[in-house]
């Protein structure tokens, strides 16, 4: 029991609703199994820790070849949502609502609450220095769990021996 725990680190680079969840779910599972978990947020992944953005993550149906009409409850098999429909005003909001409802039906929490769960469970969270500078953000813009703003080299140092997953 005294040996060092396995370490795992996630680089979260996407800010869409569907790409926010993989690291949250895997990270939560890893914490539940006793791993040391680090999350590093960069580029669009900054939306997950940005207190002004975290509740507004979206999913666009345009050019999303996996999103089928059948997800909306219309039994049309492999028929996709036509891109021409996806560009209509309100379609992104509609697809987002659909996905949020499906996630909530599984009793999986919204992103902000999930981030708090991870922080409470001991995950270490860091914001990327370059993204912070590029997007003109400050530590005050981030949700509570974010411990620090670090450079890429610092992240590499602090994840020595960890398995790193890029999302």
């Amino acid at each position: 029991m005294s040996e060092e725990p396995r370490k795992i680190a996630f680089i979260c680079s996407k800010g869409t609703l569907d790409m926010a969840y993989p690291a949250l779910i895997m990270g939560w599972a890893a914490l539940g199994n006793g791993l040391d978990v680090t999350l590093f947020f960069t580029f669009w992944g900054m939306d997950l820790i940005n207190t002004h953005r975290v509740d507004r993550l979206e999913l666009a149906p345009v050019a999303n070849t996996s999103m089928k009409m059948s997800m909306m409850g219309v039994k049309t098999g492999n028929l996709g949502i036509p891109n021409i429909m996806g560009v209509l005003p309100g379609m992104t909001a509609f697809a987002t609502k659909l996905m949020r409802d499906k996630i909530s039906d599984l009793d999986v929490p919204p992103v902000r609450e999930f981030m708090q769960m991870l922080a409470d469970a001991g995950a270490k969270m860091y914001a990327c220095k370059m993204s912070v500078d590029m997007m003109d953000l400050k530590k005050e813009d981030f949700i509570d769990g974010v411990q620090d703003i670090v450079t890429a080299a610092e992240f590499i140092d602090m994840t020595d021996g960890a398995q790193i997953i890029f999302i």
Binding site: A29, G34, L35, A121
Partner: peptide
């Protein structure tokens, strides 16, 4: 709470 759960059963509450 999550915090309590992880402090009661540290290092892997799911399995423990």
């Amino acid at each position: 709470s999550t915090k309590e759960l992880f402090s009661l059963f540290p290092k892997g509450p799911a399995k423990k």
